[in-house]
């Protein structure tokens, strides 16, 4: 639903059932340059406790969402974060507290997970739209700057490989979410 709220009319997800993910394509402008963004939505893959490795491959930013009404989704963040860092040790990651419309008081609370790993924390609501556009625009900006300045060993290797392939223009920004909160087969 966060994706839908951000893309509004422009959203046209592609279901890639083989990889159990929903892909959203989006065009954004950063510093006057037009870039293509691929949003990868987990589409309930979290059910299997772990993502397929291809999911992390060439991702340039990660958005981790939890539901402020469900402690379980918050507690699971650490597991997902560990897995993310195994594959992508350096990419920017944003933590999102979704559904603040359910209880606005949560915005007055501290969430140590984000603090512990020095990750930015966004309070958002897919329902009323609070901070959704800001979240995605910031994520895109982070992804672009990461891609330009990346020091990741894996990225350098990939860069080498890419020289033999067509030039790559996409940014991959996976929206890693908790099932039932913002991501679902009917992407919420």
């Amino acid at each position: 639903r966060l994706m839908e709220r951000f893309l509004m009319d422009g959203f046209r997800p592609q279901q890639l059932s083989t990889y159990a993910l929903t892909l959203y394509k989006h065009t954004a402008t950063v510093d006057g340059k037009t870039i293509l963004v691929d949003f990868w939505d987990t589409a309930g893959q979290e059910r299997f406790q772990s993502m397929h490795a291809s999911y992390y491959h060439k991702a340039h930013a990660c958005i981790m969402v939890f539901d402020v009404q469900r402690k379980v989704t918050y507690k699971n963040l650490s597991t997902w974060y560990t897995e993310l860092r195994e594959f992508r040790p350096e990419i920017p990651c944003i933590v999102v507290a979704n559904k603040i419309d359910a209880d606005i008081k949560v915005t007055q609370r501290s969430f140590n997970f984000a603090r512990k790993f020095s990750l930015p924390l966004y309070f958002v609501s897919a329902a009323d739209g609070t901070n959704v556009v800001k979240l995605f625009n910031d994520a895109i900006r982070l992804a672009v700057s990461y891609k330009q300045n990346s020091r990741d060993f894996m990225d350098e290797v990939l860069q080498e490989l890419e020289n033999f392939e067509l030039e790559q223009k996409e940014e991959d920004v996976p929206g890693q979410g908790q099932r039932g909160s913002t991501e679902s087969p009917r992407p919420s």
């Binding site: 915005t107 007055q108 501290s110 969430f111 984000a114 603090r115 924390l121 309070f123 009323d128 739209g129 609070t130 901070n131 959704v132 556009v133 800001k134």
Partner: peptide, 8 residues
């Protein structure tokens, strides 16, 4: 675009 700041 609804932006609201919630300082932590």
């Amino acid at each position: 675009d609804v932006e609201v700041e919630f300082p932590q």
